[in-house]
Design a protein around this nucleic acid. Structure first.
Lengths: 256, 256
DNA sequence: CGAAATTTTGATCACGTTCAACTTCAGTGG
DNA sequence: CCACTGAAGTTGAACGTGATCAAAATTTCG
């Protein structure tokens, strides 16, 4: 089987690695091990379902570029988006660890992915324990993002929710170099946003308009500008996600 | 320092171990390693905050018995409960992996806990990689529970939410032997439930009454009986959480 | 037993949904 | 280039749900 040569310099620019490297100081060796697992590079077209609720899925897909949504369709016909998947995120976390996926994942734009199998990854975890910890870190990040989302939909007013959402998008995109100067590209329809925030489309639209009129944000095409971040932070009560750095591999205790 | 002798038979009955053992076949050796990390056994009284939003927390506390709530207090005075912590769950996941905790954890009943430090645990992960995977599994479970909670608060009607919630409680408690025959002890005030489900107390009360009148549930003191589980499952669209079992430690590929 | 917390009930009202129409825009083919 | 089409965004009016506030009933606990 032919394996392309791995160019570490390029790998280090991959948004997933950029994100991980904040918490783990990845050695060239680590990168080589991880990239050695990859089975395929995949392009998925907009509107395609990547993961389907109810079916087994056993891959981890590192998102190099593009947006996706993890969602659930309910009996009553409504849709709830559980989380947006941005560049640097992983598709298949948590779905690949369940006997059958509970959510579907939909490509909101064209997507470029690197794919590896879960079993290969887990095997690597046994050989190099730091990879197990990386998985934990990713899952914890996922859990916290989700927890914040519970608070959004549970107890925040529509305006607060939207403010929080936009700030979350900004910081998550900024982490991977896709946002700067209080401004970023957000290729989501209002229907997607409303299903993420648990609002109706008309009400989301009005809420968006409200923030625009107040001068807190500006929109053009799909570019969002946070023109009054302070006001938004006040509204949304947003706190950036600050995971600790993982302790280094070698136990500092009991040096022999 | 005095360490109590570890009685493995007892450890195996600990709800946390019971829960983990479904996914990992824990050897006596694993149990000994894990129990060797424990620093203290702790009793926390009802109404005490175990973790406080905004403060550093670096412990993992295995809940042997009792109920707690992970919650956030918002600017507007409202409270959202992100997740209920049941016997077998871990307090400090995810809080201990953040620079500062983002949520508080409140004891809803008296609590009995086994405590270990995060850095000790992580150190163990490097020595025995399966512990890193266990942490991943726990975090993934957390993420999925939370995701389900997003759907609840986002797109389910109050009745659906409550049905889903009661079924979730039943299955989580059943996993650790605290529920059977469609019936279980749930020592939560209606205020707690309403803050978990994002409803007002009066409305939760009415919703509870509705399910009672329809004959789907019965309540006495704090014992819940699911008298018509089928109806509830229909309403709540509940799916039990079925994590995969972790692959075994030894890679089946390339035996040398 | 008395005090406090919790549960239950009722009345009112605001917010956000729903449904429908209309506008704007992007893409396509005549 | 414009007409056509379908998707996405915007606006309006009416309705219903669930919040809010208040008070009563009940339970719990010191």
């Amino acid at each position: 089987m032919h394996r392309p040569r791995i160019v570490l310099g390029q790998v280090r620019r991959h948004p997933f690695i950029v994100r991980l490297d904040r918490y783990f100081n990845l050695s060239d060796d680590d990168l080589a091990s991880l990239w050695g697992l990859l089975e395929a590079e995949l392009i998925v077209n907009k509107r395609r379902d990547l993961v389907v609720d109810g079916y087994e899925f056993r891959k981890l897909c590192l998102v190099e570029s593009g947006f996706a949504a993890r969602y659930k369709l309910l009996r009553n016909g409504k849709r709830q988006i559980v989380n947006l998947v941005l560049p640097g995120d992983v598709v298949g976390l948590p779905g690949s660890f369940l006997k059958k996926a509970r959510y579907s994942v939909l490509a909101l734009t064209d997507l470029k992915l690197q794919v590896c199998s879960v079993s290969d990854y887990v095997r690597l975890c046994y050989k190099r324990p730091q990879f197990g910890l990386m998985l934990s870190w990713m899952a914890i990040q996922e859990a916290v993002t989700c927890a914040e989302h519970v608070i959004d939909t549970g107890r925040r007013s529509p305006t607060e929710r939207l403010a929080h959402f936009l700030l979350e998008m900004y910081t998550r995109l900024e982490m991977v170099g896709l946002a700067a100067n209080q401004s970023f590209e957000l290729p989501l329809s209002q229907e997607v946003m409303s299903d993420a925030l648990g609002l109706s489309v008309p009400h989301l639209n009005r809420t968006l308009a409200k923030l625009r009129i107040e001068g807190s944000i500006a929109l053009s095409n799909h570019r969002v500008s946070l023109t009054d971040p302070t006001a938004l932070e006040m509204l949304g009560n947003f706190q950036p996600l600050d995971l600790t750095c993982a302790p280094p591999a070698l136990a500092p205790a009991r040096l022999g």
